[in-house]
Design a protein around this nucleic acid. Structure first.
Lengths: 233, 233
DNA sequence: AGGACAGAAAGTGCATGCAATTGCGTGATG
DNA sequence: CATCACGCAATTGCATGCACTTTCTGTCCT
């Protein structure tokens, strides 16, 4: 190993670790569309060789989070407004399926888990913006996981990350307040409410999230890859 | 290059070539769930090194077509009935979105293109089974492409391949007759019909495809990887 | 000052080599 | 005859090296 650090953290899987790190960095807005992701810098950050970093970039490209062009440095993808529209439409469709599976099926324990996440969202209200976004996303993914359908979970997860990237690319920072009350209402309606109403509510919620965010507004951020990624390694 | 053969076909991209080859082989039923895909055999088949084959396997695993476990030989994925159910539900949702975008928007040229594919399906009726499946899939993908929404296209394409794998894994060979007339009807309804009817028709069509196929029935096939893959290199 | 260009630096594309792991055949054993 | 242990062949995991491409930079010419 070239890095001096003993990175032998008994790696369950080094590659998915680096993928997950970059995914989170993107979701939380630490990595910004257009940011460069050179293979060896990545490898160094995560204590692996370029081979692994390269492989990870391939996966992320397949998920649409990274732009990969031959002989060029990988970059964080920059979704166009059309892409964002597309992504949110698909997301609505997928998450409505989640709702459909879940209506009237939530156990007390599950409701508690969901409300826990919303509580965390509430607590993180004034913290760093990234945490809010991550928790909001976590809520939706948790919901998907409760269907017990692994393939649906995979697609919802992926589209959530893409949606997050679209927002950080095209949108304003984040408005978490509304999302929180909407999430609570959503839990209730999925638990009791009629299926139609729950599905519609999910659609409205997602549309609202998309709409709330589409008003430009740039933020300056650290632009140094290694310090950006440090918290995610 | 280690292989004697001059595989220098001015590779646009060697990796996506090998992915596409395996995808098609799986879709057409040449590769069967559980079939082994050793990296060097693959590399040899496509005239590339193990590195590329490995990378390709990673992509296919992300798409759910290949099962990849640490230190184990890659295998064609073997979806469970639950997976299949999941996949078809998701597929219905996605393709209904396709229909929604397309209703009343098809140009004469597009209708012609679609009918051409159906014609080919008709012609391939008595040919090899794989061709029928491939054409039926091509119909659905073409439909998705006509929305001009690349992300939707990507998801539809992926889910179509997964659906194909599920069928070849769990289903009977294929019953193309019905699909052909249903495809024609679908074109008409998308072109003129009310949106609701078209969406419902798409749902029914996909349900029918799924239902028709769920009756077991094993076929014996060639089990030699290199000869299986030869047509796809 | 501004732009074109050459060479250096940085980065990717890919094959290969070696260590580690798996699994399979073989033979010993109850 | 079935079962288990063990060792070798097959295969993966991963880093490294080299060729080629892009990008940066400093220089020279206008």
């Amino acid at each position: 190993m070239t890095t001096g650090k003993t990175t032998t953290k008994l790696d369950g899987d080094r590659m998915s670790a680096i993928c997950q790190g970059i995914r989170r960095a993107i979701l939380e807005g630490a990595l910004f569309p257009g940011d460069r992701l050179p293979e060896d810098a990545l490898g160094e950050s995560f204590g692996v060789s370029r081979t692994i970093a390269r492989h990870a970039l391939g996966q992320l490209a397949a998920e649409g989070l990274v732009d990969l062009r031959r002989n060029r440095i990988a970059m964080v993808a920059a979704p166009t407004p059309a892409d964002a529209r597309d992504i949110f439409d698909i997301r609505v469709g997928l998450e409505q399926q989640v709702v459909k599976h879940l209506v009237g099926q939530l156990t007390a324990t599950q409701i508690r888990q969901l409300k826990d996440i919303v509580q965390q969202e509430h607590d993180a209200r004034d913290g760093p913006e990234g945490a809010s976004i991550r928790l909001a996303t976590e809520f939706h993914i948790k919901l998907a996981e409760m269907t017990g359908r692994p393939i649906l979970v995979r697609y919802v997860t992926e589209i959530c990350y893409r949606a997050g990237l679209s927002l950080s690319s095209l949108g304003r920072p984040h408005s978490s307040e509304c999302a929180i009350s909407e999430h609570l209402l959503l839990i209730d309606t999925i638990a009791k409410g009629p299926a139609d109403k729950a599905a519609q509510m999910m659609a409205d919620h997602l549309e609202a999230v998309a709409a709330r965010a589409l008003l430009g507004g740039e933020g300056t951020r650290t632009r140094d890859l290694v310090s950006i990624l440090a918290p995610y390694t």
